[in-house]
Every structure is written in C-alpha cells, then in structure tokens.
Design a protein around this nucleic acid. Structure first.
Length: 352
DNA sequence: TCTGGGGTCCTAGGACCC
DNA sequence: TCTGGGGTCCTAGGACCC
C-alpha cells in the first residue's frame, strides 16, 4: 500500500450548478459573472465549455465576453447556491477513507493510502456525480503539486497520474508559469535570468534563486520546478486569518465625503461578518483603487483587539484618511497632476 | 466600454531596543 | 563625529490563487 494524493476539481463548477437547476441551459454557452448584466463593471467567474469555445475565459470583463459570445446566457453569481452545492460535494468526499483538504468551492485534495489510486479516483467521480449531479476531474500524484498539475491534463472530467517519473516528460518543456504558484511576474523575472522552461528551473541553483526571490520563495520555486512539494494534505477545518468586503463602483466616486460614507458602510458589513465569526479583530485595513486602476492599501493595528462595529468603522475611516492624504501625492503616469477618483473601496479585518 | 471579489503568504525596510 | 550586530514589531505592497 502506498500514499497517494488525489486532486478533485469540479468541471465548470458555477456554470454546472446553474445548468443543474435550469436543465434547459444544457449544451448552451453559459457565462456566470458579476450580476449578470453585461453593461456593468464585472468579470467572468466561470464560463461553460460551450462559451469557452468562443474564447470566453475566467477573469475576462463581462463586456468582452458578451462581444465574443453574444448568444451566451449571462447569469449573476449566486454565492449561497454554490456554497450549498460545494458543501454537498465536500461531504461526499469525506465519506471516503482519506484525509480531505478543501481548497476552494470546487477543489479538494484527498490524501489516501491505496495500491490503486485510479480505482479510487473512479469511485470518487462516480459518487460525486451520483450525490450531486456534478462532474469532476481527478489528478493523481505523490504530492499535492503533482496531483494538482495532473488534473490540468485531464480536463474535463479525466483521470491523470503524474509522479516523479513522469514529471519532466509532461512539464519539462513548458514555461515556468505553467506551474501552480508561479505566475506571470515570477516567470518574467525567471526569463530575465535565462530560465524559460520548467526543466531549466529544476536545474537552477537554489542559492541563485534565493538571492533573486528571497530565502523562502527562492528555494520553493526551485522545488516546484522539480515537482517536489513537502506540504501535507491537512484535513483540519480551515481557520480564516481575515474577513474582507470590497466594492467596485459602477461610476467612480469623485467626492471624498462620499468615499468616507461608503467606507463606513463597507466597514459595518465587515463588522457584521466578523460578529458572526465571533472572533476579535486585531488590525483593520483599507484598500483603494484610484481610477483608472492604481491600487493602494493601508492597515492599522487596533489599540486593543475589538469586536465592536463602531470601533472597526472608526479605525477604517482613520486608515482611509491616511490613504486620502496621499491622494494628491500619487503621481499620474503622464505627470499632469489632477484629482484622483475612486474606483474601488475595500475594508479588511484581520483576526487576533 | 478594459481589468470582480475574497483570500493567503512573503518580503523589505523603518523604528526601536539591547 | 562615527556608527557594530542582532532581534522584534510594524506597515506597505508584491504575488499568487480560486
């Protein structure tokens, strides 16, 4: 018997849940995002495979998606419904003799001891489908990185195994940002160092990576290139570090008093979330996005951990003023000074 | 008519202390 | 007038993920 990691990933999760409750949508391009109004600011959360065929992708502005696929059905994000569906899936996974680590609405790792991980994967797929009507893919590996990577090669709905033996034949010639945890910024820096493939990254000197990316991230990037991942599958319930709310305004706010007022409102929403959690807040942060798209953040430790909504709102307003005072000092790309307008406002509470 | 919302973790640098 | 080394706490922001 050997230790294996399975990565379970639901196919087009949000779109699939919408099709489940509206079967007449099956086979049609479905796009879930924002409040479903393509004339408003918002992005695609999930596109069905039919919509993806038109070039619609997650993260794409809804307007762009509507241009690419005008006949798609555009639906608003209905969070409570997806949370229920997700909980059903995760409860189903926990029926298996495995450690289950939930990493999102539509993804989980299973740590299991078995001689036939493919058989386990087939049973997981079948039981999830029977219990929820949802289809999933399963990646198999000796660690979480290999399993997560494998899932990507089987989409949609496949079962793929990657181990140390097959890591380089699948990943070796791909660019580093094909790796989980390495994005475009890091890939660009790696390219500047002459590292343009996963294999080259795997062969890079840890000391060189540490000098460029820091003592923790540097060696971690190297390990990732080699397909190594010592992190265990953790079944404990996740304990949130923070709670936040943010809002993008349909029209930028031009009046600072209006910004203050919205900040107080958002802070009270966060305070209500935090009150549900029943945990004390140690720090309060504010995020501002100046138009056109420049994001700044600031945070402040509370004098003492608190739960009171008024205290959280007062702290948020204090932090907001710090950002506001910097507003005229924030240069524009063209160097011409003028008033900054506010596109987004967010408030975050960090737990003690 | 560009570019959501909710998270996590790490780094760098300054303040401050011994 | 010059100026060590280590440690901790704090803030701003970078990067990435779903």
């Amino acid at each position: 018997m050997a230790r294996w990691v399975l990565h379970v990933d639901l196919d087009q999760f949000l779109a699939a849940v919408e099709v489940l409750r509206r079967p007449e949508l099956a086979g049609r391009p479905v796009v879930v995002g924002g409040d479903g109004d393509v004339t408003k600011r918002g992005v695609v959360s999930t596109a069905s495979y039919e919509a993806r065929a038109f070039g619609v992708r997650s993260g794409m502005p809804l307007r762009t998606a509507a241009r690419r696929c005008p006949d798609a059905v555009f639906l608003p994000v209905d969070k409570p419904v997806y949370e229920v569906a997700s909980a059903q899936v995760m409860a189903t996974l926990k029926e298996f003799d495995a450690v289950v680590e939930v990493i999102g609405w539509d993804e989980a790792f299973l740590g299991a001891v078995t001689d036939d991980p493919e058989d386990l994967a087939r049973r997981v797929k079948a039981r999830v489908l029977a219990a929820t009507g949802l289809s999933c893919g399963v990646g198999i590996g000796r660690n979480k990185l290999q399993a997560k990577t494998a899932t990507g090669f089987g989409k949609p709905g496949g079962i793929v195994r990657i181990t140390g033996q097959t890591w380089f034949e699948r990943m070796g010639e791909l660019p580093p940002d094909a790796l989980w945890g390495i994005g475009s910024r890091t890939a660009k820096k790696l390219a500047e160092m002459g590292i343009s493939t996963v294999r080259m990254l795997a062969e890079a000197d840890d000391a060189v990576l540490a000098a460029r990316f820091g003592p923790t991230i540097g060696p971690w990037i190297g390990r990732t290139g080699r397909g190594l991942d010592p992190s265990p599958v953790v079944g404990d319930p996740h304990v949130a570090r923070s709670r936040s709310r943010e809002v993008t305004f349909q029209e930028n706010l031009t009046d600072w008093d209006a910004v203050r007022q919205r900040c107080a409102e958002v802070a009270r929403l966060v305070a209500a979330d935090v009150a549900d959690d029943g945990r004390l807040v140690a720090r309060v942060g504010v995020k501002l996005r100046w138009a056109p798209f420049l994001t700044v953040t600031s945070a402040r430790k509370l004098p003492a951990p608190a739960l009171d909504a008024g205290e959280i709102a007062t702290a948020a307003l204090g932090v907001l003023e710090v950002l506001g005072e910097r507003r005229t000092a924030t240069p524009w790309p063209d160097g011409r000074p003028r008033e900054r307008h506010v596109r987004l406002l967010g408030v975050r509470a960090e737990f003690a």
